[in-house]
């Protein structure tokens, strides 16, 4: 592995802010250029770029992970696949990138890409919630006890914290169900 590639992989593996900033500076403009050329905008490029980094983040957690290509080849390949999938879902046959966009490298990567697309549905729904719901649910999903959550949120009682948790989670579930991707996901 080249030193620069190792630096980027370590930045992702260790969630290193400075290294990740360098990654954005170095590679986001190139990914943006690709997305713009293929019917997208800079905001789409940012989303795809972030999702690709999350895919790599999951990949590098695997004990037997080895980078078998250059880092940019991997990143670019994942972005191509993610954007290709989104184009197909978003605009049917109106806009498409060449059929050979499928990135076939890195064992197990296609499964991770699929998983990423599924999970994005939940993250998108979560982001639509109000700030207090996001905070409450973040602690709830992290298995913080309800009594502790009630204290942190400065609620009057644990009972009220449970009620708010239910209301927030219900909002989340309803938003997920209202998303077109949901039926596709549950049919898999």
């Amino acid at each position: 592995m080249r030193p620069a590639d190792e630096h980027y992989i370590n930045a992702i593996r260790n969630n290193d802010r400075k290294g990740l900033q360098q990654l954005y500076q170095e590679f986001l403009p190139r990914i943006s250029a690709f997305i713009r050329k293929n019917g997208g905008r800079d905001a789409d490029a940012k989303d795809v770029f972030q999702d690709a980094l999350i895919v790599i983040f999951k990949k590098v957690q695997e004990a037997d992970f080895q980078l078998t290509s250059g880092f940019y080849t991997l990143l670019y390949g994942i972005c191509r696949n993610l954007w290709g999938n989104r184009l197909q879902k978003k605009s049917g046959n109106e806009v498409s990138i060449p059929e050979d966009y499928k990135y076939t490298g890195e064992a197990g990567l296609s499964q991770l890409l699929e998983q990423q697309e599924e999970e994005q549905l939940f993250w998108d729904a979560f982001r639509q919630l109000g700030q207090d719901c996001q905070q409450l649910l973040q602690w709830f999903f992290a298995k913080v006890k309800m009594a502790e959550i009630a204290e942190r949120m400065e609620y009057s009682s644990v009972g009220y914290a449970k009620k708010r948790k239910f209301q927030c989670k219900e909002q989340l579930i309803q938003r997920v169900k209202a998303d077109a991707r949901y039926s596709e996901l549950m049919n898999k």
């Binding site: 969630n15 900033q21 986001l28 940012k46 980094l53 983040f57 957690q61 939940f122 999903f141 579930i173």
Partner: peptide, 25 residues
């Protein structure tokens, strides 16, 4: 699935870091 996805603490931290960097970018 919701619990499995949104309950991943390390991914949460990673996402928060990326979002902060993305905004600053």
């Amino acid at each position: 699935r919701v619990h499995r996805t949104l309950g991943n603490a390390s991914e949460w931290a990673f996402r928060q870091n990326l979002e902060a960097i993305s905004e600053a970018y």
